[in-house]
């Protein structure tokens, strides 16, 4: 199941695959892809299988599946300042120029230092901007008074009770006016959000699941099939 919520009056779908979708503008939101991270590791002698290009393909197929007209990346599209200059850089450039819909990037801390960022086929948005009434920023601003989407944190929830089995899962995290998206990149870590801290939604591959009472209260039920 997917989860349908309203953030300050703006309706959003939290979708399987770690993305959020805004039906009224057909926009797909994604955060923290960290493309090129596996390559950076390999360049330093740590063998990691390639995950950046598959991640980009996965985003493209989610875009098609939900028929999104625009994709907004909420920062940290790229991992390393030299990513675009490495062998993998060309593949990432090609992946973006072949991308089925326009891509907007709200630059994050990793992107700002990237060399040759302007060689990518995408629109670079403001670091703290607004799109159709929704504030977009890489780093969440907990004091935001208007509805906001952000990334940067890589939120995860740890489920389980004392002594029992535990499960760690990436999650969407909503608090006040801010919704923080889970990290999209396959090779990324996470930051634990406390169970009672706002609304937590487990971000699975097949389902998004409201975890705590706040999240259940926030959910408006199953959305209309966006397709």
């Amino acid at each position: 199941m997917t989860v349908h919520i309203a953030l300050g009056g703006i309706e959003l779908d939290l979708l399987p695959g770690r993305v959020a979708y805004r039906p009224d503008t057909a926009t797909l939101f994604v955060a923290d892809m960290h493309l090129g991270k596996s390559g950076t590791f390999r360049a330093h002698g740590v063998p990691v299988p390639e995950s950046s290009t598959p991640d980009l393909q996965r985003l493209a197929s989610l875009t098609k599946k939900y028929d999104a007209h625009t994709v907004v990346v909420l920062g940290d599209l790229l991992h390393d300042r030299n990513t675009l200059r490495g062998e993998l850089g060309a593949q990432i450039q090609k992946g973006l120029s072949d991308f089925p819909v326009p891509v907007h990037l709200v630059p994050g801390n990793h992107d700002l230092h990237t060399k040759d960022l302007d060689s990518l086929e995408l629109t670079i948005a403001a670091e703290d901007g607004e799109l159709d009434g929704l504030r977009l920023r890489h780093e969440p601003d907990p004091t935001s008074v208007s509805p906001m989407l952000a990334g940067h944190i890589h939120p995860v929830a740890i489920l389980g009770t004392r002594g029992g089995p535990h499960l760690r899962t990436r999650c969407f995290h909503a608090k006040h006016q801010t919704m923080t998206l889970p990290a999209f990149g396959s090779f990324t870590g996470g930051f634990e959000i406390h169970w009672n801290d706002g609304s937590l939604f487990a971000a699975g591959e097949q389902e998004v699941i409201p975890l705590n009472p706040d999240a259940k209260e926030m959910s408006l039920g199953t959305p209309q099939d966006p397709r």
Binding site: L159, G160, T161, L167, G204, E207, L211, N212
Partner: peptide, 24 residues
């Protein structure tokens, strides 16, 4: 330290564990 046999999916486990946490 009881082991309960679990053949559940990720989704089932997430649901069960979050219910347990709520009741604690």
């Amino acid at each position: 330290r009881a082991t309960t046999v679990s053949t559940q999916t990720w989704e089932q486990r997430v649901r069960r564990l979050s219910e347990m946490m709520e009741h604690e």
